[in-house]
Computed example of a mutant assay.
Amino acid sequence: MDAGHGELQIVSVEEAGPGTAVCVVRCVGGVVRPGQVFESGRVVLDWIVRYGERRVDVVSPPHAAKVQLSGDGVAGLRAWITISSAGYRRYGYVGPAEIRAAVRPGSEGRVIRTLDDFEAWASDQAVDELAEPFTYVVDGDGDLRLAPRRSEHVACAGRGAVLGAGEIAFSRGGVGWAICEVSNQSTGYCPDLDSWSAVADALDRVGIGRPDGFTYEVVFRRCVACGEVSVVREGDFVCVFCGGELPASWNVV
Score class of each variant (00 low, 15 high):
D2P: 07
G4N: 07
G4M: 04
H5E: 12
G6S: 07
L8I: 08
I10A: 06
V11A: 13
S12G: 05
E15Y: 00
A16M: 09
V22A: 06
C23P: 01
V24T: 09
R26D: 01
V32G: 08
P34C: 06
F38D: 11
E39M: 07
L45G: 15
L45P: 15
W47Y: 15
W47S: 05
I48P: 10
R50W: 03
V56Y: 05
V58A: 14
V59Q: 02
S60K: 10
P61H: 02
K66C: 07
K66F: 03
V67F: 10
Q68N: 09
L69Y: 09
R78T: 08
A79V: 05
W80I: 00
I81Q: 14
T82W: 06
I83P: 02
S84F: 09
A86Q: 07
R89Q: 09
R89T: 14
R90Q: 01
R90S: 04
G92S: 02
Y93T: 14
P96C: 05
A97E: 13
A97M: 11
E98G: 02
V103N: 04
R104G: 08
E108G: 06
G109C: 08
R110N: 04
R110D: 11
R110P: 08
V111L: 08
T114C: 01
T114K: 00
D116A: 13
D116K: 14
D116H: 11
D128K: 15
A131W: 07
F134T: 03
F134K: 10
V137N: 15
D139C: 04
G142W: 11
G142T: 06
L144N: 11
R145I: 02
L146S: 02
L146P: 06
L146C: 02
R149M: 12
C156Q: 15
C156G: 13
A161L: 07
A161G: 11
E167C: 01
A169F: 04
R172W: 12
G173D: 04
G174Q: 09
V175C: 07
W177L: 14
S183L: 09
N184A: 04
T187K: 10
T187E: 11
T187W: 10
G188E: 15
C190E: 11
D194C: 03
S195M: 13
W196A: 01
W196C: 02
S197Y: 03
A198Q: 02
V199D: 03
D201F: 08
L203G: 09
P211C: 13
D212K: 05
V218T: 15
F220A: 01
C223P: 05
C226Y: 02
E228M: 11
V229L: 02
R233G: 08
R233H: 14
V240S: 15
V240D: 12
G243R: 13
G244C: 08
E245A: 11
L246M: 01
A248H: 14
A248L: 14
W250R: 01
W250Y: 01
N251D: 07
V252Y: 03
V253C: 12
